[in-house]
Design a protein around this nucleic acid. Sequence first.
DNA 1: CGTCTCCTTGACACAGATCAATTAACGTGG
DNA 2: CCACGTTAATTGATCTGTGTCAAGGAGACG
Lengths: 279, 279
Amino acid sequence: MPWPGKKDNPAGNDAKSAQSAGAATPIKAGPARPRCGTCILRPHCLPAGLAPEALRKFENIVQHSANLAPGEHLFRVGDKFHSLYAVRTGCLKTCAVDPNGREHVINFHFVGELIGIDAIFPEQHFSDAIALVESSVCHLPYRAISQLAREIPELQLQILRGLSRHVFSMTSISGDFTAEERLAAFLVMVGARHRLAGGASTELQLAMSRQDIANYLRLATETVSRILARFQKSGLLRANRRQITLLNPEGLYAIAECMNPYSRCGINRHRPESGTTHR
Amino acid sequence: MPWPGKKDNPAGNDAKSAQSAGAATPIKAGPARPRCGTCILRPHCLPAGLAPEALRKFENIVQHSANLAPGEHLFRVGDKFHSLYAVRTGCLKTCAVDPNGREHVINFHFVGELIGIDAIFPEQHFSDAIALVESSVCHLPYRAISQLAREIPELQLQILRGLSRHVFSMTSISGDFTAEERLAAFLVMVGARHRLAGGASTELQLAMSRQDIANYLRLATETVSRILARFQKSGLLRANRRQITLLNPEGLYAIAECMNPYSRCGINRHRPESGTTHR
DNA sequence: CGTCTCCTTGACACAGATCAATTAACGTGG
DNA sequence: CCACGTTAATTGATCTGTGTCAAGGAGACG
């Protein structure tokens, strides 16, 4: 675990990491270089589309992290920024507790997504990044990556695209939508991520608790539960704790459609019949 | 009480001069090259900190826009993306109408801020950018700028910082806060922007309507009005339509503090650092 | 087989939305 | 300069979507 940002728990309050210590074995640390070239995520990650030579240079910079146990921190509020991270396996949340004691989940980070973008500017992390399940990330040392981006135009464009996509996706959930709409959109999004990572898009194994979902969607956990129950009653899905089966993805999508930026200019992929009106 | 950037329009009734000036009149158009070197915004804009030679190259790429009259579009949903914009004078909003007919104000863009970041990834605009008052922007042709960023390391870092700051600032308003907190934070933010652009930070001339503020803060316009009245009653400010006088900025700040990322790690006052209390 | 933690469900409360009416500014044209 | 229409802003009365409080279930795990 050569890279900082996750200096070992000084306070030792990552109790969980100790508990599942068996799982926290560093993944082929040391000399083994990451092989982005053979990573199934590459098409969705920064090195997408890099030429062989460029890819090699990129691989020389990237570092694999040790595995993160559920509940373990990747970085904490106050940590100095020096690296971006790309999720390789698992899922993390970034969150912060405000002075009034409320926890806000700023984002979930799925496989292939970047973590730490908001820390470039202040050069310091203002959120905690916490693994929700056993996870691993790639370290992208900021100095080196931005330096390399100057040599490799395609990499630079990829980075800018990545940051832009991050902004793009944030605009949806930050809008004014009902609880149903936000939760439906959340499930649709998780389904899409599952598919993207090669899984089934109708059988979702959520990585996060109801509490986390609620804090992300600006809801109470009870509301998340209730709306899931409502969705279940109307045959949209079947929910058993964190196991969600989407029975009627199109129906969910119809509810969430108003949050899809693409639906704003006729690019709409899905074309669900305009049957059910909610609200 | 000058609106930032209005310095050369003193006696001024902004709206009227805008109208009479004619929306299509290019500002010092034609051969006159933008002079970032003498722009008072430079410290807060992309070319901040560029060496003279780099600055010259940058100026050769940037294009000034024609002035935008209030209500005029800079771009529209569906437009192809080819340029970022930096606000030179005035204020714009980006917004979109969802399929249910609700308008969402995605962001306000004040002097010195970038517009269009979220369009890099999809290479297309998914929001409308509309001037709220007489405004002008600098065009930053994306191809040319990203190309130049490869030559000028400092520019590249500035761009990344700019995108990061954008993300950073979005995280606050997207959180779960009360209407009072969001409105207070909004006013504090506007005050800071005024100060940044050289104006008084307690005499605010809002560029946006109550409706726009409401759509931005996920509130009803009536709620915005009511909370302003409440603030006024408690002596925090004096509000007359779009003219806001902050009588007790510290009081407002106290309400908004929970939304300030910096208050999360003792950078700001308050915050008795009780070690790492993590749930 | 208790103890936990997470999740669900019900009853009730409230922040903020909605509906409705009034007032204040502004621009237009006479 | 004054009526006039139009739009923005305020204020009041009511309604409702979600939050809050409280009380179970139901797995997980030692």
